[in-house]
């Protein structure tokens, strides 16, 4: 068990390093970050001044080590646009993204798991078919468009919810509905297929044969084993909800990390963009690693072969 966890942590650490190098390297996609910051029409002297001021004239590896070293001590650099520490800006914005992500995730789970179980109990029943329709349509509707249409219908036509911002809790209603709508199909599908597998096993048949009511068979025996694949998927989904909210945040004018990243890109505030990419990637690595470890704790069979 310990060796599994340490191996998994080593991989996670390596992934973190790779991802940090990638988000660092992203700055140099355009060739010269100084010119990107000065703007395409900027004067050469300005670009040169920026190059010296931000240390872009140093060797790449030195810049990277400097950046990652600072990042480890909680210093993600200085915003070029606001001229305040990046961590401060991110700290102000991260709350909205986390709130949105976690609430959407919980809503999705609360809806998807019972539906998945119900669908597994009667494969090809009406609920199963209805779930399929939801899943197929969810895959085809662009999230930002669904958000806009929801604003038109519920915000403008009916006036039930505010059309932008999150000053009140009502501002979260539409974004949460839209975001969770996209997480539900996958979560439901995996609950359903997990349940179908488990329901066919001998121990479930034995539990039923000894006369245990169906709801106890499900809650005590079947569901516990069926949620195993759900754990990994849930981690991935939560990570995607957090990083994928960039589009939704800009549709609903929520001041979260995603919108901050987008605004920072438009004003060439590269240190902020870099930091957000790093934070979101690390968050994802942490979530998936935790899920793997949790899975190994729940299911001893997984510890051997990974």
């Amino acid at each position: 068990m310990l060796s599994f966890i340490s191996k998994r942590l080593l991989v996670a650490l390596l992934v973190c390093l790779t991802v940090s190098a990638l988000s660092f390297g992203l700055m140099f996609v355009s060739g010269d970050p100084a010119i990107a910051i000065a703007g395409a029409g900027g004067r050469a002297e300005d670009a040169e001044a920026i190059r010296v001021a931000y240390g872009f004239d140093r060797p790449l590896i030195v810049q990277y080590l400097d950046w990652i070293g600072n990042a480890l001590t909680g210093n993600l650099g200085q915003s070029i646009y606001f001229n305040v520490p990046v961590t401060e800006i991110i700290g102000n914005r991260v709350g909205v993204t986390l709130t949105l992500g976690f609430i959407s995730f919980l809503v999705a789970l609360v809806i998807a798991v019972p539906l998945g179980v119900a669908a597994a109990l009667r494969p090809n029943g009406w609920l199963d078919r209805f779930a399929l329709v939801i899943a197929v349509s969810g895959q085809a509707i662009p999230s930002f468009w669904l958000g806009l249409m929801a604003i038109v219908v519920f915000g403008v036509w009916y006036g039930w919810v505010p059309i932008s911002g999150a000053d009140t809790w009502q501002g979260y209603i539409l974004p949460v509905i839209v975001l969770s709508y996209y997480a539900i199909p996958e979560l439901m599908r995996i609950t359903r297929s997990g349940m179908i597998d488990v329901l066919a096993t001998d121990y479930v048949r034995a539990a039923r044969a000894k006369g245990l009511p169906m709801h106890l068979v499900i809650s005590r025996h079947a569901l516990r084993n069926a949620v195993l694949p759900l754990v990994s998927l849930a981690a991935v989904q939560l990570g995607q909800l957090l990083s994928g909210s960039i589009v939704i945040e800009s549709v609903f004018a929520l001041n979260g990390l995603g919108r901050l990243a987008w605004e920072s890109l438009l004003r060439s505030d590269l240190p902020v963009v870099q930091a957000i990419i790093l934070v979101l990637s690390l968050l994802y690595v942490v979530l998936t690693t935790l899920a793997d470890i949790l899975n190994a704790v729940l299911d001893p069979r997984l510890r051997g072969n990974s």
């Binding site: 992934v15 790779t18 991802v19 990638l22 988000s23 992203l26 700055m27 996609v29 355009s30 990107a36 990570g239 990083s243 994928g244 960039i246 589009v247 995603g258 990243a261 987008w262 890109l265 438009l266 963009v273 957000i276 990419i277 979101l280 990637s281 994802y284 690595v285 998936t288």
Partner: peptide, 17 residues
């Protein structure tokens, strides 16, 4: 490593730059 990158954000940044 690729799966841990936030796709939309990285694509946006790469296209912008």
């Amino acid at each position: 490593a690729r799966l841990s990158l936030p796709i939309v954000l990285v694509a946006l940044a790469a296209v912008a730059l």
